[in-house]
Amino acid sequence: MSLLPPNSTKVERALETAMLSGIDLSDVGTSWNPATCAAADLPFLAWAVAISHWDTDWTEAQKREAIAQAILFHRIKGTRAAVQQVLDRFNPLLTILEWHEQSPKGTPHTFQVRADMLEIPAEFLSASTAEAIVRDVAAAKPLRAHFDFVQTLEAQATLYLSSGGLAGAMFRADLAATHDTSRDWSLVLQTEDGEPILTEDGTDYLETA
């Protein structure tokens, strides 16, 4: 027998049914807390707070920290500070050089993400790491801004450029760099701003059939 009035909503009736069925709702409050949420539920909580830089390979502690900082990150998303925060997560020695800081000056609304090989170990910039950096920076940067991922090879006084609009890959051996062409990036779907479109689970990019 229901105690709800005739004009009760479907939600109210559903809640009454759930309460009468004896379902344990004691964990509902902990499910929205990244510190107490069950590890298996972390991806769902990350989706709920719209994390755009989620990595399934993170440790559980890293996932909980990313969720805890999500609201603060959204407040600065689209700024240099947001991009630097993403880079610091990969390596604090990765730097940003905006167009007006370059010599000669670059194109307005562009910037470079720079990795100095003399400061960053060679094994750090694997193909997967370089692609992850490009992906996460693309999610944090201002929409109108475009960028290049630049590896400086000071010993040879040369630069290796990988387009930020397309998730390039980098390799380095014997102070040399090559571009991985194993993937046909012309098949990757892009937004109107030229950014690659991720799949629903965020682990790859959508391609044309």
Rank of each mutant, 00 (worst) to 15 (best):
L94E: 07
A38M: 05
R144I: 04
A139Q: 15
P92A: 00
A61H: 07
D57C: 03
E65C: 06
Q85Y: 03
R183K: 08
R135M: 09
M19R: 15
S31I: 08
G202M: 00
S163C: 10
S26D: 10
K63P: 00
A68F: 03
L175G: 08
R80K: 15
T17F: 06
D136G: 07
L72S: 14
T203D: 03
F44A: 04
G168R: 06
F44W: 07
G106W: 09
S26F: 03
V137M: 02
D180E: 11
G168M: 13
T191D: 06
S31Q: 13
M19I: 03
G202T: 06
F111T: 05
M117G: 01
L45E: 12
S163F: 01
A46Q: 08
T79D: 13
L25A: 15
A130W: 00
T191P: 02
T158Q: 13
S186L: 10
R80W: 03
V86S: 09
K141M: 14
W54Q: 03
P108M: 07
L20E: 14
Q151F: 02
E195A: 13
F73T: 11
A61M: 06
D184Y: 01
T59C: 08
L161S: 04
A173T: 07
D136H: 13
L159V: 05
E12L: 09
A169D: 06
L87W: 02
D201V: 01
L143A: 09
G165I: 01
K10H: 10
A140E: 12
K141F: 02
A50E: 09
E195L: 14
M1E: 14
A130C: 12
K105W: 05
H146P: 00
L25H: 10
D184H: 08
I133G: 05
M19E: 09
G22A: 14
S103E: 15
A66H: 03
A176L: 12
D88T: 07
S52P: 03
